[in-house]
Design a protein around this nucleic acid. Structure first.
Lengths: 211, 211
DNA sequence: TTTCTTCTAAGGGTATTCCCTGATTTATTT
DNA sequence: AAATAAATCAGGGAATACCCTTAGAAGAAA
């Protein structure tokens, strides 16, 4: 039985790479390649793939929302998330939302095919490196390095104020709260970002585009 | 005349994608594909490509440093940086360091070939979207205004140490100077950069690429 | 309803930064 | 040789940041 495959990725090179990997392989057929979410949503009901390889860093929508929509339309579809990063928290969220596999983009042909067969059999496919990370995470919990920490609304306001080179006193006047409260927020931000001091806060905030 | 091409990218799929794009094209030959910086440095003198397509987000070294090393070994080599992001400041830095082109990974076959021919003719290749961004940046004056303040060698060392979230005490131990000297340097840095405190130092240092 | 999160605030410290001043030595430039 | 810039060090004090802990109130979520 032939497996029908569709691919959604805004990187032309990745798209081509996967197609190249899969041509010349019996029982596999690429029935569609899409560059964004909209295109995918429109075309997928026509191409009717068994498996969708889905880049989760699309320009127009995030991977989770798109997965939900697609599975709403086609409950039989198996979705394998494609990404550059080993972001555990994101993996978990994706899996919760019905995604069937999670592949790094440095995957080779054999593993790619294995992944597709695994999800088609109804199982979940995770790469070893990701499995290990999930295991390590449950035992020790420090390895949170990857994506945006979610600061609260207030913390974000304090963060911005810190980045404006304001002192605690000045921030408290700006936000109409006690200086002690500002300090509490600053401490919580440091802890969330893993910074040692305000310098670290700013460095990390700029790095992760929190400003 | 045949163009010899090498590719360095830690994403297997991208690697395959580019190879797929370039096979079946006359006058082009892929003479090597590498997954990291070390492999590239070791093999490039044997494969002797005319053009290297280089992913700048490698795991083991940053793109700028690798480019420098490669061009030191092979001054005739043309390097085209590959990336996911339209990061203008980074483009500029890469170009300053001798890189000949900057390609987004969603580039198609035609543009890829055009890019290689452009750099081989001795010119710089930039994609339109990046060109536009650079133009918009120079006409608008929001960022990058003002020249780089020239910090002294020592001040720069202190700046780097500050950015590592070290305290005055720790910096003094690292540089084998008195804490008071460190403070003097920090004050001078603040004054030169126009910062109100260490947070400002880091913000401006990142903005002006002083790190 | 209960639990969780967020925002708020404070006590009571210690550590560090910030700011001013003034000064010596060593290179580099003129 | 003389002026200039860079790097070094320091005293002293005010301001600020950092740290740990505790805790009430409001709102959202389970």
């Amino acid at each position: 039985m032939e497996i029908k495959i569709a691919i959604t990725d805004d990187h032309q090179m990745v798209l081509q790479g996967i197609v190249a990997m899969l041509t010349d392989t019996p029982d596999l057929k690429v029935v569609g390649t899409y560059k964004n979410a909209q295109e995918t949503l429109e075309a997928i009901e026509i191409s009717k793939p068994d498996v969708l390889l889905l880049d989760i860093n699309l320009p127009d929508i995030n991977g989770i929302d798109l997965s939900k929509k697609l599975l709403g339309k086609m409950p039989e579809l198996k979705i394998i998330a494609l990404t550059n990063f080993e972001d555990i928290s994101f993996v978990k969220r994706m899996l919760k939302n019905g995604v069937h596999g999670y592949l790094l983009k440095n995957t080779d042909k054999l593993e790619l095919i294995k992944a597709m067969k695994t999800v088609l059999s109804g199982e979940i496919f995770l790469q070893k490196s990701i499995q290990n990370k999930i295991i390590n995470q449950t035992s020790g919990k420090t390895s949170d390095n990857g994506l945006k920490p979610n600061l609260t609304r207030r913390e974000h306001e304090v963060l911005v104020a810190i980045s404006e080179e304001l002192t605690t006193q000045e921030i408290s006047e700006k936000l109409f709260i006690s200086p002690k409260t500002v300090e509490t927020h600053r401490m919580n931000i440091m802890s969330k970002l893993g910074a040692k001091n305000s310098v670290g806060i700013i460095k990390i905030a700029i790095e992760k585009e929190l400003l």
